[in-house]
Simulated assay, not measured.
Amino acid sequence: MSTHPQVVTVALGAPLEVRQVSTRRPKGNEVRVRVEWTASTPLDVHQALGGLLVVKYPQGLGDGTAGTVVSSGPNARYQVGDKVFGFTWRSNEEKSHQLYCVAPDILLGKVPRGFTMQQAVTLPNNFVTAWHTLTSDVGFELPWPKPNDYVPPELDEWILVWGGSSSTGQFFIQILKWYGYKNIIATAGKQHHDRLQRYGAAACFDYRSGNVGGPISDFLSQQHQGKHNIRYAIDCIGSRAGSVKPIAEVVRSGATVAVLLPVIIADAVDNQKPVYTLDAEEDVAWAEGVEVRGVRTHFWLDNNFLAEKLQTEIMPAALELGMVEPNEQVVVEGRTLLERAQKAIEMLRRREVSGARLVWRVAEEGEE
């Protein structure tokens, strides 16, 4: 059996390494993808530096894949030469920070014409997260295909998206707008407000301006639509001090709050292990009657409809129909696969980029 290079974490906080791993043939509905572009995520940092969830060393990293199908199983919907992108994460074989990824076809969609792999790879994990959160944890319908006359039942309710300029936050706002939601409030740095308002936010507030809850409450009190409280809040940041507690100060009884896990208690800094919790209610003074839900994106495949449709059909259509735009990209440069992967981890840890995705090449041109 042939082998190929894969980026792995080998010990808690240790530098990443590249190992040679087996390259196997796809079976059933699987395809083997030559990974050309990937996007690093906070989960890469959480696992490499904090050992979040189940980490079995050496463990591959990366869950955003964009590349070319080079081999397909007998029942796969994609054929050799197809350009695909997807959220692949469940095993080392599926991880994206390697030359070849083997995954079932339901975890991939075709890259639409007019879009590059570099653009497409900004979607999979965070688009899936946004859709899953809205339908499973927030409880919105999001019917697919969307009827031409669709009006959301929650049309008049106010929705807070904390961290609107994050990759996931941008998709939350754009999906909500496409389905007819108008009462969207977003928090983000001032430099991102114009874009988020174009995406569908009715108002934006700078979370760094001190007590942002005051201006949000003042804004709501000035509205004349009979709904002056936040009914739904989505925390795209998951920082106990930076987002969870501020949201708890704003929402009132009857609100539903979805917090993207993990909740960060202490960030990864030099020579210090990060601290996380999977309990979004722990050590937070939530008002009585607020329903708090911790979002676990990886459970979206439990929904049979989404398992079959979300990545194969809805995600590519979202680009083609203009439901969402790709995130802006910052390309991580480096001479080798390992250098690019390690540099991306460090850039994420230091939070060097705001409002854009860190993307980088896996396979070089002509590399097989």
Rank of each mutant, 00 (worst) to 15 (best):
S2V: 09
H4S: 11
V7W: 02
A11S: 13
G13V: 06
E17F: 01
Q20Y: 09
V21E: 05
T23E: 08
R24I: 12
R25K: 15
K27R: 15
N29K: 12
N29Q: 13
N29R: 13
E30Y: 04
E36C: 11
T38K: 03
A39V: 08
D44L: 07
D44V: 09
V45I: 14
Q47A: 12
Q47P: 04
L49R: 14
G51C: 07
L52A: 14
L53H: 12
V55A: 08
Y57R: 05
G67F: 00
V80G: 05
K83Q: 15
V84E: 00
F87R: 00
T88Q: 00
T88D: 00
T88P: 00
S91A: 15
N92E: 08
E93A: 15
E93N: 14
E94D: 12
Q98M: 13
Y100S: 09
V102C: 14
P104T: 05
P104V: 01
R113Q: 13
R113L: 10
G114R: 09
F115E: 06
A120P: 01
W131L: 08
H132R: 06
D137H: 13
F140K: 02
E141N: 14
P147K: 11
N148P: 10
Y150A: 12
E154W: 03
W158E: 02
L160C: 10
G163W: 01
G164A: 12
G164V: 13
S165N: 15
T168D: 02
G169R: 02
Q170Y: 06
L176R: 03
W178D: 13
Y181F: 11
K182G: 10
I184L: 05
I185C: 02
A186W: 00
A188D: 03
K190F: 04
D194S: 14
R195W: 07
L196P: 01
R198Q: 15
G200A: 10
C204K: 03
Y207A: 10
R208F: 04
S209I: 01
D218T: 14
F219R: 02
L220S: 08
S221V: 02
Q222S: 12
Q223H: 06
G226N: 05
G226Y: 01
H228G: 15
A233M: 06
I234D: 01
C236R: 01
G238W: 03
I247M: 07
I247C: 07
S253M: 09
G254D: 08
G254P: 04
V257I: 12
V259Q: 01
L261Q: 11
V263Y: 04
N271C: 06
Q272A: 11
A280M: 10
A280H: 04
A280D: 06
E281T: 15
E282T: 03
V284A: 02
G289L: 10
R293F: 10
G294K: 06
F299T: 11
N303S: 12
K309C: 09
K309D: 02
L310P: 00
L310C: 02
L310E: 00
M315L: 14
A317E: 11
A317D: 11
A318Q: 00
M323E: 05
M323K: 07
V324Q: 02
P326M: 07
Q329S: 14
Q329I: 15
V331H: 11
E333H: 12
G334P: 03
G334Q: 03
R335D: 15
T336V: 10
Q342C: 04
M347K: 11
R350V: 08
L358P: 03
V359N: 08
W360Q: 13
W360R: 13
V362Q: 12
G366C: 04
G366S: 03
E367P: 10
